[in-house]
Design a protein around this nucleic acid. Sequence first.
DNA 1: ACCGGGTTGTTCAAATTCGAACAACCGCTA
DNA 2: TAGCGGTTGTTCGAATTTGAACAACCCGGT
Lengths: 153, 153
Amino acid sequence: MTQPRWLDSGEMAAWNAFLEASHRVGRRVEHQLREQEGLSHPQYEILVWLAEAPGQEVRMTELATQLVTSKSGVTYQIGKLEKAGLVRRRSCPGDDRGVFAVLTEQGLEKLRRAAPGHLEAVRSSLIDLLTPGQLEALSDSLNAVNRGLGSAD
Amino acid sequence: MTQPRWLDSGEMAAWNAFLEASHRVGRRVEHQLREQEGLSHPQYEILVWLAEAPGQEVRMTELATQLVTSKSGVTYQIGKLEKAGLVRRRSCPGDDRGVFAVLTEQGLEKLRRAAPGHLEAVRSSLIDLLTPGQLEALSDSLNAVNRGLGSAD
DNA sequence: ACCGGGTTGTTCAAATTCGAACAACCGCTA
DNA sequence: TAGCGGTTGTTCGAATTTGAACAACCCGGT
């Protein structure tokens, strides 16, 4: 460890803004989904990823990677969604270890019903608070961050 | 509810980038603190807020507001920090309901030791991945978001 | 066919988070 | 001073998350 590399006031402000925004936005989105749709945000995200995947199915580990969460977390949430009939499990042909999470018809229906309210929450919590230029700049910056962190896990 | 206001591809990309960055950055920072300093991120944040406050003390509810978390969450974490000797509680003169969380000498020491590694993690997870221009743009955008959400809780 | 290293998904215990409920208290008003 | 709406911090149970440990499996080299 060499000299500590402190953050200047601008860098610190950016970090604090990032932290605060993460919490505030995450909180609002989770509340909306929970109260109006009876879904947690992780659950909703799973439904989205499944709906967009070919065959509406994704392997458990790939789901964990995409959602940036733990494997056990995915096991837990898929269990919940399965009990609710929104998702089912399918063993993976050609790999006895593998498990596909598959979106059910009910799951797709649930997603369709939940989407408008969720998107409205995303708008009011983030999108509509920014000018088009700000939004684009935000997107660019965060994409750079994600590119930087995606490789070095 | 009127017509659903869908997100265009740019808006959706921004939202996904925000979600992914929140998870990736939060995860890295939490890991670093946990592994190298034995602190959770919420705990570290509490120490920072206390250190910066006049008298190194903050009321419980104010702490919850600043950290954008729940009151019971603060009660829990302060309990942990108190057991570790990093924080102590002080009843609030003039308001028997009130409780101050006070940073101890040990707590300040802990913060001083933990800060360099934490800041290095913040750098490698966010700051150093962006150009100065990108960082400023990010800061501006997120500040706008926080201003928008700060009032309408 | 058989190892040996790597992968996959689950289980488990521990830690954390949240909101609702609660008791105690504050300040203001009649 | 008695009452009442609002605030404060804690407690409680339920839900969620995590990593480590694990059993089962895959695959390439021998």
